[in-house]
């Protein structure tokens, strides 16, 4: 499927009941240089809109919320050694985590790209 977006600047792509989640290109532009990312433990149960990861830029720490509920089944280990990958490839290579969906209906609350672009660009 194509990506869906949350108002909190996360993107989600679902494949076979597994949601790959990351932060948007707009978010990384606003954060600036990312220097550290804290990812959740594999097996962690997360609820929609809950904090699941932390992104630290040079200036500040920001919480990343998961837009959907489920269980974390994989995290992007590459981000631990190369957090700046988020600045280079936010909406693809720099995915944060994969979550096995427990309530796929939550996807309906997310925006498509056009709606998200409208949100951030006005």
């Amino acid at each position: 499927m194509t990506a869906k977006y949350s108002k909190d600047h996360e993107w989600v792509i679902v494949d076979n009941g597994i949601a790959t989640i990351g932060i948007t290109n707009h978010a990384q532009e606003q954060l600036g240089d990312v220097v550290f990312i804290e990812l959740p433990a594999i097996g962690k149960k997360v609820a929609a809109h809950e904090q699941a990861a932390v992104v630290e830029s040079v200036k500040a720490a920001s919480e990343v919320y998961v837009p959907v509920s489920g269980e974390v089944v994989e995290v992007n280990k590459e981000l631990e050694g190369d957090p700046a990958l988020v600045n280079r490839d936010a909406e693809s290579g720099a995915w944060f985590m994969k979550v096995k969906l427990s309530n796929p209906a939550e996807l309906d609350e997310l925006m498509d790209k056009a709606a998200y672009d409208k949100l951030v660009n006005g």
Binding site: D8, H9, I23, G32, V55, K59
Partner: peptide, 17 residues
């Protein structure tokens, strides 16, 4: 996540971060 502005109020002035 919540995003801050790049121009921030600093001691009453708008300054670029």
């Amino acid at each position: 996540m919540k995003l801050g502005a790049r121009m921030v109020p600093f001691a009453g002035y708008d300054m670029p971060v």
